[in-house]
């Protein structure tokens, strides 16, 4: 068996593969060059590709994303890094008003083939302004592809699809997953956008997650199996395109669903998925559609407080038990 790699290494590897494959791919961001990124997710890139492919910028989120957009519209495929996803707010105009709208408002005259990568979510104790899970922000904007991988090989395979996409992609890398390990990706590995992964098959209940919530629900499924409850586990991988069909197919089999999400319940992505299941899966359901989401509070600093506001393995198991037993 090949040696396992970390999620962190997979980010750099995924970018490197695209930089090698296509000379029009470039990286732009703060401290990503010789500094190799504050999360070391660009390790080795500057050494291999140098300053004509890896561009260090001032602390100018608007200029980073805006310049990447102008370059994307004129023949380049930029990968822009926004250090922490909380900082997307500093360039939100570009994310919400520019990248996703310009194709439409010009009647299809231009394309914006670019990726904005960003470190998302909690788990590292960085406090309220460096820990929020904001994938739901991106989901609210028609015209953005939203990707959030949970394993190293998915990071590489989805990075390939993201960079090759002719549409703008927000690529959420999860801080709490950087140190996790998984199988390496074979050469040429590409995971299509909008294809969920059924990580574990089951018949009694469907557990749906994304990025950070995947280790939680996989562990929950394991514990439930020990009690004789068979959980099907789905990793959405992308919020847009959303593989709703995969979820509906699963619910047709299990009749029950829990959506486990890190972002706040208030406006969280699970609400969109729940509305689809409640509507189109209504006749398959034997129990209400359930969401376990982050509490609707800013991210607290202390670990014991964060544990209170994020969904847990225990809460997932308890809820599944009640739904299946009830």
């Amino acid at each position: 068996m090949a040696e396992l790699i970390t999620y962190r290494e997979a980010v750099a590897e995924g970018i490197a593969r695209e930089l090698r494959r296509d000379p029009s791919v470039v990286c732009i961001g703060e401290d990503i060059g010789a500094g190799e990124g504050v999360f070391k997710t660009t390790a080795g890139l500057f050494a291999e590709f140098g300053p004509t492919r890896i561009w260090d910028t001032p602390i100018s989120e608007q200029a980073i994303v805006g310049a990447a957009m102008g370059a994307a519209m004129t023949g380049v495929r930029p990968i822009a890094e926004i250090m922490f996803s909380d900082f997307l707010a500093c360039c939100w105009d570009f994310i919400a008003n520019e990248m996703p709208k310009v194709r439409y408002m010009t009647g299809g005259q231009v394309s914006v083939p670019m990726v904005v990568r960003t470190a998302n979510g909690g788990g590292l104790g960085f406090g309220a302004q460096h820990s929020q899970a904001v994938e739901n922000w991106a989901l609210t904007v028609p015209g953005l592809i939203v990707v959030a991988p949970s394993t190293p090989s998915d990071v590489i395979g989805l990075m390939a699809s993201a960079v090759r996409s002719d549409d703008p992609v927000i690529f959420f890398e999860h801080k709490a997953l950087f140190a996790t390990k998984g199988e390496p990706a074979p050469a040429g590995h590409v995971v299509p956008l909008g294809k969920a992964n059924v990580c574990r098959e089951g018949t009694d209940i469907t557990l749906v997650g994304l990025a950070w919530s995947m280790p939680i629900i996989l562990e929950a499924a394991e514990l439930l199996a020990a009690e004789g409850i068979s959980a099907e586990v789905i990793d959405l991988r992308c919020l847009v395109p959303l593989d709703a069909a995969c979820v509906l197919e699963s619910v047709a089999k299990t009749s029950r669903i829990i959506i486990v999400e890190e972002n706040p319940f208030q406006g969280g992505w699970g609400g969109t998925l729940a509305s689809i299941v409640a509507d189109e899966g209504f006749h398959d359901l034997d129990a209400p559609v359930k969401r376990l989401a982050g509490a609707s509070v800013p991210a607290p600093f202390a670990k014991h407080l964060e544990d209170q506001v994020l969904p847990s393995v225990g809460a997932t198991v308890d809820l599944a038990r009640r739904l299946v037993g009830g």
Binding site: V26, T52, G66, A67, G70, T74, V76, M105
Partner: peptide, 23 residues
């Protein structure tokens, strides 16, 4: 390359097309 109605938003984009020409 377009007309933009969020004040200032296209100024970084012009920097981007200039960067693109260099690349």
């Amino acid at each position: 390359m377009g007309s933009y109605a969020i004040i200032g938003s296209h100024i970084p984009m012009a920097v981007g097309s200039a960067w693109s020409a260099v690349l």
